[in-house]
Design a protein around this nucleic acid. Structure first.
Lengths: 218, 218
DNA sequence: AGAATAGTGTCTCTCAGACATTATTTG
DNA sequence: CAAATAATGTCTGAGAGACACTATTCT
């Protein structure tokens, strides 16, 4: 079998990015205006370009931030492409909560429970990305990507609560996260002016962050 | 932003399939000969074709089987494609153990621990597919896709042991899988000629098969 | 009767989850 | 000293894992 077809049909490979961040105490997605509806930021794949590089390009076209957590989500056979090949490779990106970023014009952070009409199958894509984010939160340390480098335990717990959409017990949360050895104390504290200052913690990237899922069968 | 570029560059979208099955008490992958080395079965995406349809086509070109479990794995920016766009969308397929299938010429079932030299990045792809299969086995009911419709508990346990590469306790295995309510008894038994005949069980596709992973944090 | 395989129950220990009070800081 | 937020420990119940013997069929 020869996988390099001699004369390939007309084709479009696009890379889309679902950008999540915590803003105003809610989980939000960055969308760009497109006529009457909205769409995910995206870029056509350039010649000989790596997929992740293209995703980063699509991200940085909208957001002025040098670093970002990017992960490939899924590839959709593009709809509305009769007579040619077409796919959308989708990535999701996580942006720290306090990052004061510049966003290009025509962009808006939408609450994930108040999305506007979206073009093509982008609503389906956002829904799937959210499911994956929630799921991933349960077995990996991906939640730290939504926080600044130093954070208090209360802030961390709050992040989890917002994404999972449920309240968590403060003592159990602290016990488990400290036992997991995944964060470390700093000597700094955060003064908010009122009440006792909270100790700041830092994520330990060297910690083994994936936990084995509980097996369905032995 | 306009995602439909006016004149797209030359392009190739290929779909590859990693086909797993249990043969001769080991987990194996189906590979096709390609000159001096071997490769994953694959097909170029046809015009306006769905990705999963293309994966099924690539599968059925090699294996005469009407039904198969297919799942999208990952999309790789194609290497060796200077001056054009190219991607490989990879699926993995699970084939029941006893299926007496016809395989086209130039194909071979390789043990996953004795792979031959593979073209391009196909070795990396197989390694990743195996990791995903093992991981998925732990939180979903994907293991049943590797078994015939009716099976004994010993066969089921054996399947898990082969894929996970470890021995499991018989009593714990049975207790947990029966408590999970994911399989049901049939009235039939399997006579192997020697020893006590084993009861046959059947997978209940209506059972909720995904189990929540244990959270890393509360 | 013997060989081969199927089938079954208990105990222990770890860990998740529920729960209320004390400690530190500012105004 | 009052208000605000941070920090801390115990008990209970569920479930994972270790472990050995009895039951059924065939020759």
């Amino acid at each position: 079998m020869d996988t390099s077809s001699p004369s390939p049909p007309p084709c479009a490979i696009n890379v889309l990015v679902v950008i999540f961040s915590l803003r105003e105490d809610t989980l939000r997605v960055l969308l760009s205006a497109n006529g009457n509806d909205w769409q995910l930021p995206g870029q056509p794949l350039a010649e000989a370009e790596l997929l992740e590089a293209c995703a980063l390009r699509a991200f940085q076209q909208q957001v002025d931030s040098p670093e970002v957590y990017l992960e490939q989500l899924y590839t959709y056979g593009a709809i509305n492409a009769p007579g040619r090949q077409a796919v959308s490779v989708v990535y999701f990106a996580l942006l720290p909560a306090d990052s004061r970023i510049e966003t290009a014009g025509g962009l808006h952070w939408f609450r994930i429970d108040e999305l506007p009409p979206l073009r093509d199958n982008h609503a389906e894509i956002v829904a799937y990305a959210l499911r994956r984010l929630r799921y991933k939160l349960e077995y990996s340390a991906v939640g730290f990507e939504l926080l600044p480098e130093e954070f208090t335990l209360t802030e961390l717990q709050h992040t989890y609560e917002v994404i999972l959409g449920e309240k968590l017990d403060k003592r159990n949360f602290r016990r488990r996260i400290l036992e997991a050895g995944i964060i470390e104390e700093t000597n700094r504290r955060r003064m908010r002016g009122e009440g006792r200052p909270a100790r700041l913690y830092r994520y330990r990237p060297d910690a083994v962050a994936e936990v084995k899922a509980r097996r369905l069968f032995p």
